[in-house]
Design a protein around this nucleic acid. Structure first.
Lengths: 163, 163
DNA sequence: CAGAAATACTTGAGCTAGCAACTATTGTCA
DNA sequence: TGACAATAGTTGCTAGCTCAAGTATTTCTG
């Protein structure tokens, strides 16, 4: 409900720069995301390490209780589809970083479970990722600003997830 | 310089939640981006419209002088590789939305140039995109907050782009 | 001015993610 | 209980992106 007026037929909406006021903020968000992601990927490749997506899987599992997570929950945390996650996890399993374990009480669910080699690789990747984040964040943002940013972005995401 | 302590071998670094302080902000940014992008894509698909990437191309060109842009500049604005852009533009050309024009003084460069049909489609897509952005932004952020966010993100991107 | 280096873009191969269809298991209710 | 709906996950297909190599053109240099 409360669909914001879309004014399809009136081109006279006062656009200062060709977009709605929010579009500028959105563009900044998309560009910041792409730029930082690109830098992290580049740094990992240069260090001969696996892609960022692998780190996100490993780091997410490392923070989870028992270092394991249901496939569905992991997909949600990473904001990718279940189909995509199945294949991503397959690759990490083939690399010996994860294993698939199953639930006794509900045989539909399977868990992605971190293996020691996965922890090890994560520790190896972490400093590279952290360094790039620090370049982007610490260089130009105070601690408080970074936290405000996080808080604002979480609200943003929250409203985007409401049905 | 000033590489923040990476402490690869000491797991005792006081992590409140498994990551550096900036990691939290980064996760929020990545998730907000994915969530909002996903919603926009979904809305466009539901409306029988082309993907978001098409809109970004059209909107970027619409804001450019003469409604055209060098391939290289367009790729940079969209934060994708040149190879990727060539094919993206090919698709839009095939759809009759753009045309490729050439530079008289430097025959290496080619321009992606907006056609009337492209403007028309952009106008059709814009309200759908704007509506989703408003759901995310206007719903939970004040005008000032959105602008602060944009400013912060631009600084973030700036530092990520420095060589 | 010739040849080397740099620039702008395109092309081909490979990888990854999303979508939709499918299997397997569990929950619901008549 | 037995059929039907809902849930969890996987798989085939396809679109789109990146990377590296290739072509064309321009600029730099001796």
């Amino acid at each position: 409900m409360s669909e914001t007026a879309t004014a399809t037929t009136s081109p006279s909406t006062q656009d200062s720069c060709g977009g709605t006021p929010h579009r500028e903020a959105w563009l900044a968000l998309a560009r910041a995301h792409a730029a930082i992601t690109g830098r992290m990927q580049e740094a990992l490749t240069a260090a001969g390490l696996p892609p960022l997506a692998w780190f996100e899987v490993l780091a997410t599992l490392a923070e989870a209780p028992e270092e394991k997570l249901k496939m569905g929950d992991l997909a949600e945390a990473l904001v990718i589809t279940r189909g995509g996650l199945t294949k991503l996890v397959d690759r990490l399993i083939k690399a010996g970083l994860l294993e698939r374990t199953f639930c006794e009480t509900d045989r539909r669910v399977s868990y992605a479970t971190l293996l020691p080699a996965g922890v090890e690789l994560m520790e190896e990747m972490r400093p590279v990722v952290s360094a790039e984040l620090d370049v982007a964040f610490a260089a130009n943002l105070s601690e408080g600003e970074a936290d405000d940013l996080r808080e604002t972005l979480e609200r943003l995401r929250g409203s985007a997830c409401e049905v």
